[in-house]
């Protein structure tokens, strides 16, 4: 599957564009959690479909890398397939669905269940990189708020949730504070994944193409989900084991299986689930 199309430069982007993205990545690593503006290019796939992640992947891939793409935790969802094929074609890199064999993993909305290692890079596709955007729509204002470390608005919003609902009513894209300085949007991962963001051995890079921002978490960075002393952050998931592999510790998709509204719960991380099944673990719904 490594038919490379020679009509394009390695990994599609021209070298000048890659240099610009690489410089942004380095600044992102130097200022963890800060959104570096970059001159995102129009990619041959739509904005909102991973153009930021694709540009970051294109800038970090080497020909020897093994590339994995997941969307919602799964390797076989159509957009993951489409992005994987794009890099097979334009970079000729080897691809895999096995988390531990991948050196670069591009993801949308999940962090793999299996802990990542030092040799790996996790590239997130980010739709709205600005954690304050839905509280303040103006870029000029949110930029000021970050510069002044003025995050009161975010705490007020979270606290209003508690006052109204008794809980913080944010279940994904749950904001975090990085190294005690920048409030950061971790992309729309479920808050179940938030604890994996901090102290991770792999480098984490975030690309928002349409919004023209790149940001980063170096390995072993301190990342704290925003919360309150009396309402500590809780990473939640469906209170079931996986129907296929029986895992109790993985994030689950809810699948409707019949017209009567019957449902089962299965791992959203397909590689994790298959790995467990291969190792002999069986859930109650497994064949």
């Amino acid at each position: 599957m490594t038919m490379q199309n020679d009509a394009y430069n390695f990994a599609y982007l021209d070298e000048q564009t890659k240099r610009m993205i690489r410089r942004a990545i380095l600044k992102g690593l130097a200022i963890p959690g800060y959104q570096v503006p970059f001159a995102s290019r129009e990619m041959p796939m739509p904005y909102g479909w991973g153009t930021g992640g694709v540009q970051v992947s294109a800038a970090v891939l080497t020909p020897e890398d093994t590339f994995k793409v997941i969307d919602q935790g799964a390797d076989d969802t159509t957009n993951a397939v489409s992005i994987r094929t794009f890099f097979e074609r334009t970079a000729g890199v080897a691809t895999t669905t096995t988390t531990r064999n991948a050196t670069v993993i591009q993801t949308r909305h999940r962090i793999p269940e299996e802990p990542l290692t030092e040799g790996q890079i996790l590239v997130y596709q980010v739709p709205i990189p600005e954690p304050l955007r839905f509280l303040e729509p103006r870029e000029s204002e949110t930029r000021k708020m970050h510069s002044l470390e003025e995050y009161g608005l975010m705490h007020v919003k979270l606290y209003e949730d508690i006052a109204r609902h008794g809980h913080i009513a944010t279940s994904y894209a749950y904001p975090v504070k990085v190294e005690g300085r920048y409030v950061m949007d971790p992309s729309p991962i479920p808050k179940f994944d938030n604890p994996k963001l901090g102290n991770m051995a792999a480098i984490q890079l975030f690309g928002a193409g349409r919004e023209q921002r790149i940001y980063a978490l170096p390995p072993y960075t301190q990342v704290v989900s925003l919360d309150f002393e009396d309402h500590p952050f809780v990473a939640s998931k469906a209170d079931h084991p996986c129907g296929m592999c029986g895992a109790e510790d993985s994030y689950l998709d809810e699948v409707i299986i019949d017209d009567a509204g019957g449902r089962m719960f299965v791992c959203s991380d397909t590689d994790y689930c298959e790995g467990r099944q291969t190792a002999g673990h069986k859930g109650k719904d497994a064949a």
Binding site: H109, R210, S268
Partner: peptide, 28 residues
């Protein structure tokens, strides 16, 4: 191009975020 891309991306799978919202609404 920015607008249509982002608008149409909501067709893509959002099982994971939706699941977390389901859990939240049930809990609330």
């Amino acid at each position: 191009i920015q607008a249509t891309g982002f608008l149409e991306h909501i067709k893509l799978p959002h099982y994971v975020d939706f699941q977390s919202e389901l859990e939240l609404v049930r809990k609330l």
